[in-house]
Structure formats: structure tokens, C-alpha cells
Design a protein around this nucleic acid. Structure first.
Lengths: 338, 338
DNA sequence: CTTGACATCCGAAACGTTTCGGATTAAACT
DNA sequence: AGTTTAATCCGAAACGTTTCGGATGTCAAG
């Protein structure tokens, strides 16, 4: 049933050594023997036992993706596109993609350590990086290859990231150009690096146009539609409500749209709303959502490519930042005259 | 740096054999030596080299999920919830989850074969099963453990599935009770088992109430919103348009809602629409979508549990079917008087 | 005719684990 | 006292691969 190198060797009348070297394309075996060996191997349906190879070579040809429980639970569309990019690229490279989640939130580092020590992956892709992320400290200390999706100003490690700050600034500019001055912002929890960056972009964007942020108009939500809905209610209850709301992701924006409409207001006329990510549903929202397009799938591919380079030491400290593009749709319009 | 069994043994003053057996909890080593060994192992930070273990035991403690390219590309929310369930449960079991996609659609079986022969997984979870699925034939022929998400009437293999037919029947009944008689259906491509079942449910549902399906009102879409939009346009252009549309997944329904509204009609009053899956966005659609709730996350967990049982031969041929529950929201209402 | 260089092949060891079959000792029976 | 039994422990082989360090043969150059 199972066919090993030894059997290929026997059938080909050659040594195991030669067969191994032939199949791995070394140049100390004659071209015609290589051919012969390959055809024997094919006829027997030989596929190397990966575990044996890994044991010997001390390479796993695999990468790990340890998803935080929070990310796992509230699967947002952006993340699944990111994931699909990672899956696609790792498959293309012929390396395994190994996905897990820590058993509990206080066992994150334990999980990483176990993976490192048991030698089952050559590197990690990190998502949801935080400031002073303990995972990164751990990996750096062990000198273990990884690439982070996310960064801060001080980051000295390999990462791929969006430029969330610039992205939001673009959205703010867009709104200011439309005449808005009372602009609100619904943010995400601030422990994540990317959420911080986006909020900063909002503040900077206002400042760029000589506006100052009204603290009453900055409100922290989470990552879900329901939260966008609730935050918007709160904003609209304000005695001097905003004419535009910058939300920090599309799901928040969709929730905001629902809330606005429930009050009998028209999105894009009475109140403008912007999102972030350009998930599939943004285009089909009603009205279609003005948002910042993130090439999620592409980012996933890039993450995987970068990690591969880090593992193979082809590059020392790659850092890539992609600037999202503003897609203007119906959810934003000129400010109402007051 | 790396610590092996040998070093634990040396430090503990015992043989490699004993250390191995102690750590694996065999009962031919004294309780106090076990304790001692464990503490030495912990102090050294020993973690077994998985590749060595796998080589020896011929078990991978890993399962594979080979995602078809189509599924990968158009990441639907349902699938990511399913995936999250699989990730969660496999992590809980402490087995690896290995995700790939075939390099091209004609290399699907090659990919499976490679995985089987290289001994890197103990079993597979299959998604998007078709009638007479060649992957299933292959796995059965190799006597390799797997569990399918999906089935047909003749299926003799282990599966977990939703009862799509009964689900849609429930939706049809609901509409009939509301007085609808001209009911349309937007289906998915019929090569998938689940899509076939859902269409059958539609036909059976009508028949149950003595209605016959109008071929003009059955129209094949795909899996995306855009398609639901286009199909609905077509339905509404009919000379005798339907008063209700049963769509076979939520994204189609969301597209349908957009199309209906664009014509100035009111969903839930002029035209009723039902979906299937109850994705996160269904509740926040406008109007909220009447749909069939699928416990996607739970299904993922169940798939993983079932596969585990199959691998460990705890059960011979497990087949589970979950009946989806109709969630009535605002997108359906009494039929307009004509 | 010898020498060296080159091309091609191979034996044996090693990676770190598990396990088979036995060895040792002490306790518990005839 | 001798013999069985049980409790602990261990040596060595094996899983299938890669690779180090040669071995063999051929051929051109000296």
C-alpha cells in the first residue's frame, strides 16, 4: 500500500541515496537515471513521507496562523477575504497552512511556545496586533520568523499593513469638501494598533482643515453592526447632532445607516456616512456605502509572500504599507444647510 | 536550545524509554518517577518533536480541509462561520487543521492523493459536495477517513448536513399561509447537492399545498448578491410577476431586496422575500430578512467532532441532519389583494 | 603508464520518537 | 526455601528520509 524510497530504489535497481537525490533534483546523478527514477516513482505512486523529511531536514514547510478567539467568533467579511488570500498563496508555495485558536485567552503565549518547540511550523502570520504585543516579544526573543498584519510607529519587525490613518484622513477631507463641519467618529476598541491609527487619522484629518474634534462626537464601538447602530442612536440624541459620521469599519457603517433611517432621515442627504474596508456588502447597501477600499485578498497574499521571504532569509526586515482608496458612493453628500 | 527526550532522560537519571512512557501516561512507570520526570521536562521546557512522533506512530493528529477555489474566492459569511466552528473544535481536540486549495480545478484529486500519501492528515472534511462527487469516490477507494458537509439520498458515507429541503418547505408554507400563490424561486447552480435539495423543497412545498410551480418563476442564480439582484429584475419583468420570492440563500435575498426597492415597491408589502442561512446581515437588512437559521458555527463543530469519531473508529457511519428554523422578520407579509 | 579530475553512484549514520521484548528487584505465594 | 507474580525500568530497533564522506570507473593530460 504505502510506497517508500526503498521500494522505488529496489524497483529501479539503484540505491536509496541516489533515488533521493534524483527526486530532489541534485546534480550528482546522471540525467538519464533521473528520468528513469522519476518514471519508476510515478508508476509506484511514490510521495515522500513528509514527517520523515521534516524530521531530518528540520524544516516544516508549514506556516501557522493562530487566530485570537475574538476574531474567530465574530467573523467579519474582511478577515475572511484576508484568510482566502493567505490560503491561496500558501497553497501556491506548496507550504502547509496551519490554523488554530488558543484554548483560552490566557494561553496565547503557551500556544505559540508549543508550536515553536514542537517544530511544526517555520513561521507565523500574526493578526490583530496590539501595541507592545506580547506575542511579538515572544517571537523576537526566540528569534522565530513571523510577519505581522499591523504595526505602530516604533515597529522594528516585519509587517504588512494598511495606512488606516491616511485612509480616514481621505474620508474626512471628502466630507469637509462637501461642506460638513460637525463630523462624528465611531471607533473601535483602542487596544488594537489599527483602531488607534484610524482614530488618529480622524483627528489629524480634522486638524488639517482647521477643525477641532468635539469629544461628544467621538464614541467607541466594537466591530459589529449592532454596535454601529447603538452608537449612532447616541450620536443622534446629541443636542447638536453631527451632519456626518465617519465609522471605522463597514459593519459599523451599516449599523449606522439602519439607525439613521429609523429616525426618518435620509442617508447621503441629511446625514453622510463613511465606512472602511469595502466589504462585499458595502456596494449593495442602501444607499451604497462610501468607504475605503482595502485589498483584503491581496493583503493576505502579501502577508504570505513576506513571511516566506523572512523564513528563507531573502530579506531582513520587510515593511509594507498599502494606502486604501476612497470609493465614493451614495452614502455621502453635500452638507444640509442649517 | 532545542531539548529532546534524551536530555530530559539524562537530567532525570533515567532511560529515554521510561521518560517517553511517563510523559505519555503509560502505567508501567511508578507514580513518583512520573512526577519527577514531568517536573524535569517542564523545567527544561520539553515539547515533543511532532515530526518524529508522527513518523513513528503513523498518526498525524491533523485533519485537512481542502477548499474548492470557487468557495475560496467568494467568501460567503456562512462559510466563515462554518470554518470558525471547525477551527474551534479542532483546537480543542489538540489536532492540527490544515487548510489548502487545489492549484487548479483539474488538480483536485491530485491534491487529495498527495495529502493521503504524504501522511500529513488523518482525515478530511469535505465541503461543497456534489452528486457523485469524485473526491468521495477517491477517499472511499483509499479507505481514508472523511466526513462530508452535504449529502444526497443515496449517500452511504459519513456526513453532517442541513435539511435544506424541509427548510425551504417551511418557508413556502409560511408564504402560502400569508395568502401568496404566485411564488418564485431563485436557485443556485444545480451541480451542488445542497442546491438541488433546496429547489426540491420549493417544489415539494408548493405541491403540499396543491400549487404547481410556474417554470417562468424558477430561475437559476449563483451565490452572490449581484445575481439575486439580476434574477429579481428578470422576475419582475414577467408579465404576471410573483408576489413572493423564495431565494435559496441570504445573499441572493439581499440582492433581491435591492432590486425590488429600486422599482419603488415595498418589500414585505408588495413583495415578500425569504432567504436561507441567517447570516449576520440578515437581521440588519432593510427590512430585516425572514430566513432560515442555520447554526453554521455549530455545524463546523459537529463536522469536526464527527470526523474525529470516524478517525478513531468510534462509530461506523455517522449521518446527522439538522433542520433549519424559520425566523420570521419584516421581509414577508400578507399577499397584496389583486 | 601513471596521475588527477570529473561524473556518477552508494553505505551508513542521523534526525527524535515509540515500542517490543526482556531484565531486575521486591513482594507474595506454595 | 524456592517459585511465581507484579511492579518498574531499560536496550535496541524501527519509522522514512537526507547527507556526509567516500568508492568506483572513465578519460584526458602529463
Amino acid at each position: 500500500m504505502k510506497v517508500t524510497l526503498r521500494e522505488v530504489a529496489k524497483k529501479a535497481g539503484l540505491s536509496v541515496t541516489t533515488v533521493s537525490r534524483a527526486l530532489n533534483g541534485h546534480d550528482d546523478v546522471a540525467e538519464e537515471t533521473k528520468q528513469a527514477i522519476r518514471s519508476v516513482a510515478d508508476s509506484l505512486g511514490y510521495t515522500p513521507n513528509l514527517n520523515a523529511r521534516r524530521l531530518k531536514t528540520e524544516k516544516a514547510d508549514a506556516i501557522g496562523l493562530i487566530i485570537p478567539q475574538e476574531t474567530l467568533r465574530f467573523s467579519d467579511p474582511f478577515f475572511s477575504d484576508l484568510l482566502s488570500g493567505i490560503v491561496e498563496q500558501s497553497s501556491q508555495y506548496g507550504i502547509e497552512l496551519n490554523i488554530t485558536t488558543p484554548l483560552s485567552s490566557d494561553k496565547v503565549e503557551e500556544t505559540y511556545l508549543n508550536y515553536i518547540r514542537s517544530r511544526r511550523v517555520d513561521g507565523f502570520i500574526l493578526v490583530r496586533v496590539q501595541e507592545n504585543d506580547p506575542r511579538i516579544a515572544l517571537l523576537q526573543q526566540h528569534n522565530f520568523p513571523f510577519v505581522a498584519f499591523g504595526h505602530t510607529a516604533e515597529s522594528t519587525f516585519p509587517y504588512v499593513d494598511e495606512d488606516g490613518s491616511t485612509g480616514i484622513k481621505t474620508a474626512v477631507s471628502h466630507l469637509v469638501m462637501l461642506g460638513h463641519t460637525r463630523i462624528a467618529c465611531i471607533t473601535e476598541p483602542q487596544h488594537l494598533a489599527k483602531s488607534k491609527a484610524r482614530l488618529q487619522g480622524f483627528l489629524d484629518g480634522l486638524a488639517d482643515h482647521g477643525l477641532t474634534a468635539d469629544p461628544n462626537l467621538i464614541i467607541e464601538g466594537n466591530f459589529r453592526q449592532r454596535s454601529g447602530y447603538a452608537c449612532t442612536q447616541e450620536l443622534l440624541d446629541n443636542e447638536n447632532p453631527p451632519t456626518a459620521i465617519v465609522t471605522v469599519n463597514d459593519l459599523l457603517a451599516l449599523g449606522a445607516i439602519t439607525a439613521v433611517r429609523e429616525r426618518g432621515l435620509v442617508v447621503g442627504r441629511d446625514i453622510s456616512i463613511t465606512g472602511f474596508d469595502d466589504i462585499l456588502l458595502a456596494e449593495y447597501a442602501d444607499p451604497p456605502l462610501t468607504t475605503l477600499h482595502q485589498p483584503a485578498h491581496q493583503l493576505g497574499i502579501l502577508l504570505c509572500q513576506t513571511l516566506n521571504q523572512v523564513i528563507n532569509k531573502e530579506i531582513e526586515n520587510p515593511q509594507t504599507i498599502l494606502v486604501p482608496e476612497l470609493i465614493i458612493r451614495g452614502s455621502t453628500g453635500t452638507a444640509p444647510k442649517s
